[in-house]
């Protein structure tokens, strides 16, 4: 009798847990659904009461055209893609190079330098933002791709991540290649990079996402519409057309699509990489 009761209680608990989890999950994606729903509405239905989730008049394409008519959305999109992809490529390359150096070479002062590199992980970006802005100003990099890309092109997190991974790679591979007369840089390109693929994927996903979503830094150094990234463009769009919610949501949806795509394609690596970082804006 008690056993039956215990099982019933267990099942009930299980049911409650699932109901709460699913309700919470719905709440988590509700704003996303709200964005999608609003992006398909004509202006008249945005301000309708009660809330209509599926509009009577489906107007996504018109909204899309309106967004491209009102702001140079294609430019913003291209800028974001270009800056994020180039930035990610540079970050992955230079961080892996440095991580490889820390993991597999011995030279005086290595450990001190590594501790210093780790230490920079604790510097909040906003604490050095203004001096960084002045550096970029002095380099004449404001309103340029260089200013958007270079200051974030190497991250201590990336160096740390690749170093940890490469520590576990057996040194015999490298020694064998050296005996065969393979140059050091070629060893890096042909042996180390392919071996590090999983960690490179993790780092790329995370870096791309951070670059794509970055807002404060572009806001600080970019004035010219020519170099606005998508985040910046969206913010400007909102300040000018603050009540055109259907257009705002259409633009927001477009801005979210790349990250969502990567998320759903590489879900497992994505979750793992975010868990391994704990560092995001």
């Amino acid at each position: 009798m008690t056993r039956v009761l215990v099982t019933i209680r267990g099942r009930l608990l299980n049911l409650v847990v699932h109901i709460i989890l699913y309700a919470g999950g719905l709440l988590a994606v509700l704003p996303l659904l709200w964005m999608i729903s609003t992006s398909t509405k004509p202006a008249s239905e945005v301000f309708s009461f009660p809330i209509r989730w599926i509009p009577e008049q489906f107007q996504f394409v018109e909204n899309l055209q309106a967004v491209f008519r009102t702001i140079p959305f294609a430019t913003y999109y291209f800028n974001s893609l270009f800056v994020s992809l180039t930035g990610t490529a540079l970050t992955v390359f230079f961080c892996t190079l440095a991580g490889y150096s820390f993991a597999k070479f011995n030279y005086p002062g290595k450990n001190i330098v590594f501790v210093l590199v780790l230490g920079t992980m604790m510097i909040p970006f906003q604490a050095i933002m203004i001096p960084l802005f002045l550096t970029v100003l002095r380099l004449n990099w404001t309103n340029s791709y260089l200013g958007l890309i270079i200051p974030g092109a190497v991250t201590s997190f990336g160096i740390f991540l690749t170093r940890q991974y490469l520590l576990a790679v057996p040194s015999e591979f490298i020694d064998a290649a050296r005996v065969d007369g393979c140059g050091e840089f070629r060893i890096f390109l042909t042996i180390i990079l392919p071996l590090a693929k999983p960690v490179l994927a993790t780092l790329s996903i995370l870096t791309f996402m951070n670059n794509w979503n970055d807002y404060l830094w572009p806001l600080v150094i970019i004035n010219s519409p020519r170099y606005r990234t998508i985040s910046l463009g969206l913010a400007m769009f909102q300040s000018e057309y603050s009540t055109q919610f259907n257009l705002l949501m259409t633009a927001s949806l477009l801005a979210t699509i790349p990250v969502l795509l990567i998320f759903f394609v590489f879900q497992k690596q994505f979750v793992q990489s975010m868990m391994s970082s704990g560092l995001k804006g």
């Binding site: 989890l21 999950g25 988590a28 704003p31 996303l32 979503n213 927001s252 801005a255 998320f263």
Partner: peptide, 29 residues
Amino acid sequence: VLRAAYFVPSIMSTVVIAIIWRFIFHPSF
């Protein structure tokens, strides 16, 4: 599915989030 649902908000850009929520908090609509 649940994990994906709970995870989605943390990958979205803060600007997009701000825009969506400004509308969510609209007093009447």
